[in-house]
Design a protein around this nucleic acid. Structure first.
Length: 108
DNA sequence: ACCGTGACCCCAT
DNA sequence: TATGGGGCCACGG
């Protein structure tokens, strides 16, 4: 019921659902996640939500990168994300940009 | 209800 | 080619 599918509640919950839908071996940019979440201009907020993720979350947050195909985190967190991406078959993102044309996911 | 914050993105110098 | 500043939107205190 609804003319819109925005019946989930908070934007944060929506980001969880979108990120959880990213297939293994693929990555999505913050802008893409924001767009699929219903707010194409809220790319920044997507990072804010992931930053506040609980430690036990099964959400594949590591599959979310910036529009340059690089990891936006810094320090140990960046290395942690890079390691998780390696486990997905992606050996780039830390210093070498990920090929978004090959690994990029747009909600298919 | 107001202000500050931020894992972004875009443009100008 | 690198660096800086501004705009955007949602969330916490």
């Amino acid at each position: 019921m609804s003319s819109d599918n925005t019946s989930d509640g908070s934007f944060r919950q929506r980001v969880f659902q979108v990120v959880a839908a990213i297939p293994p071996g693929r990555v999505a940019t913050y802008g893409t996640v924001a767009r699929l979440a219903g707010s194409p201009r809220a790319a920044r907020q997507v990072g804010g939500v992931l930053c506040r993720l609980p430690e036990g979350s099964l959400l594949p947050w590591h599959r979310v990168i910036n529009r340059h195909g690089l990891i936006s985190l810094t320090g140990d967190d960046a290395l942690r994300q890079h390691t998780l991406l390696q486990a997905e078959g992606i050996t780039a993102g830390l210093a070498t940009p990920i090929d978004l044309q090959h690994c990029g996911w747009s909600g298919d």
